[in-house]
């Protein structure tokens, strides 16, 4: 198959490797042929199947992309220009290096895991002894006072979400899925708590009454967030704006929601065992 070499220049080639697939609409059309230092950074040459070049007009952009999973394969994704003459040998593409929602969600997971661990510690403390209940009640009261601030943070997020109407449908779907999992996980956790600490729940009832109104407001806000997510589909723009908003989500979630249970632990860094390594000729 005849291939045509085009290139782009990036100030940072971290994560880009020789042989990495080049995809157009998610379909492999070539691969990274070579990398070399250039005056502006690193020049990355792409070998693209000539048969597909008519779909890639001059003015198209390339960007570094990863599949939905954080541990998924990375690739160079071509974002074709709307019209124009096709690329020819030696042409240069603009290159955009942006954080994907997957990476942002990974950031969220990483930041949320410590909160989850602390939650587990608190729960185990509760299970171990009842003498700490008074201390816990004081902590609960103090934290309940913070709920209005959290509510305000969530409202700000909602305003931002409503304004944002960018594409990224696939990534937004993943975000929505995480939110749904959060809801399911919270329900599961609630059921478990209900079975594990019924006595404690009774002792805390007076405190719970005092924070009931704040929690109700919070639940309504959560419902609004779900609605906005469904209505606008993509809630988060790419780039630093998204990161800032994600930061707000993290902050609010850490303080209020038992979201940590909803986020899976980051995927294990160990390589997956693949039975293909047993295929004849793999020696």
């Amino acid at each position: 198959m005849h291939q045509t070499t085009v290139h782009f220049v990036t100030p940072n080639a971290l994560g880009i490797n020789q042989g990495m697939p080049v995809k157009l609409y998610g379909y492999s059309v070539g691969s990274v042929k070579q990398l070399g230092l250039a005056a502006e950074g690193v020049e990355v040459q792409l070998a693209i199947a000539t048969d597909h070049l008519w779909r890639i007009p001059k003015g198209s952009q390339a960007r570094f992309a990863r599949e939905a999973s954080v541990v998924g394969a990375s690739s160079i994704e071509i974002m074709p220009a709307k019209s124009g003459a096709p690329l020819v040998e030696g042409d240069r593409l603009a290159f955009e290096r942006s954080r994907t929602i997957s990476e942002i969600m990974d950031e969220i997971r990483r930041q949320t895991v410590p909160a989850f661990n602390e939650l587990k510690q608190v729960l185990s403390q509760l299970n171990r002894s009842s003498e700490d209940v008074s201390v816990l009640l004081a902590a609960l009261r103090a934290e309940a006072e913070r709920l209005p601030a959290t509510h305000q943070a969530l409202n700000e997020l909602l305003k931002n979400g409503a304004r944002t109407t960018a594409e990224v449908g696939r990534e937004a779907t993943a975000t929505l899925g995480a939110a749904r999992r959060a809801s399911e996980s919270a329900q599961r956790a609630t059921d478990q708590i209900g079975q594990a600490v019924p006595e404690l729940a009774a002792k805390l009832s007076s405190t719970l009454e005092s924070i009931d109104s704040a929690a109700g407001q919070l639940r309504r806000t959560g419902q609004e967030a779900q609605d906005v997510l469904k209505r606008t589909q993509p809630v988060v723009e790419r780039g630093e704006t998204a990161l800032r908003e994600a930061g707000e989500v993290i902050g609010a979630a850490k303080r209020v929601w038992p979201l940590s249970g909803s986020f899976e632990q980051p995927a294990e860094a160990a390589l997956a065992i693949d039975s293909f390594d047993a295929y004849p000729g793999r020696k």
């Binding site: 909160a115 602390e118 939650l119 608190v122 729960l123 816990l136 902590a139 609960l140 103090a142 934290e143 309940a144 913070r146 709920l147 959290t150 919270a186 956790a189 609630t190 708590i193 729940a201 805390l204 719970l208 924070i211 929690a215 919070l218 850490k254 303080r255 209020v256 929601w257 038992p258 979201l259 940590s260």
Partner: peptide, 11 residues
């Protein structure tokens, strides 16, 4: 209770 416990963690 669960929400509050989580809030306690962040505090």
């Amino acid at each position: 209770l669960l929400a509050s416990l989580c809030a306690g963690c962040a505090g």
